[in-house]
Each structure stands twice: as structure tokens, then as C-alpha cells.
């Protein structure tokens, strides 16, 4: 990995980093990846992916919920007429 890989990932993750932070992250990530790489020695061909997990479905129904709309709206960092407000997109 190189600094530019860190920059690419930071861009995808929408995080702004200083050069020092990039350097630290690079060395941390190399350490972590070299630890987790050990799974590459497992022979996964022997493992049959048997999924016993199943989806839980439910009908769409309109029901009362416990959410407080006011509490949600009160917390918008910026709002107008009860909508969240952000910088112009287009």
C-alpha cells in the first residue's frame, strides 16, 4: 500500500486527512492487513457454503410507531419548513 491508496480510500469514505494522519493510517492499515491476511492460508475449497440463514418477510402495513417526529426534526443541523437543508447540489 502507498499513500495514494490511503487517499483513494479516504475519498471513498469521505474523510479528510492531513499528511501525518495519512502516514499513520498507512502504517496502521499495513499492520492490520498483515494480521488478517492469515485467513489466506485456509483452504476454503474444503468449506461448503451452507447457508441456513433465511430472510424474514413481512407485509407492508401502516402502523403507529414510537418515533417522535418533533424530536427528529429538532435535531436537524440546518432546516427549512421542517425539511433538512444542505448546500446546493446542482
Amino acid at each position: 500500500m502507498e499513500i495514494k491508496d490511503v487517499e483513494k480510500l479516504a475519498e471513498l469514505a469521505k474523510i479528510e486527512l492531513s499528511l501525518d494522519e495519512k502516514k499513520n493510517l498507512l502504517s496502521d492499515m499495513e499492520g492490520i492487513l498483515s494480521y488478517v491476511k492469515q485467513i489466506q492460508e485456509v483452504n476454503i475449497e474444503e468449506i461448503k457454503p451452507e447457508y441456513e440463514h433465511r430472510n424474514i418477510w413481512r407485509e407492508d402495513k401502516i402502523e403507529e410507531r414510537d418515533f417522535s417526529g418533533d424530536l427528529i426534526k429538532e435535531q436537524f443541523p440546518e432546516s427549512q419548513d421542517g425539511f433538512v437543508k444542505v448546500k446546493k447540489i446542482m
Binding site: V36, I39, Q40, V42, I44, E46, I47, P49, E50, Y51
Partner: peptide, 11 residues
């Protein structure tokens, strides 16, 4: 990484 990790998780 991710796909392989799930395989090992199943194991």
C-alpha cells in the same frame, strides 16, 4: 478478504 472471511466464518 471479505468473501473469504465469510467462508471461514461458515467453517
Amino acid at each position: 478478504y471479505y468473501k473469504r472471511a465469510w467462508r471461514v466464518r461458515h467453517a
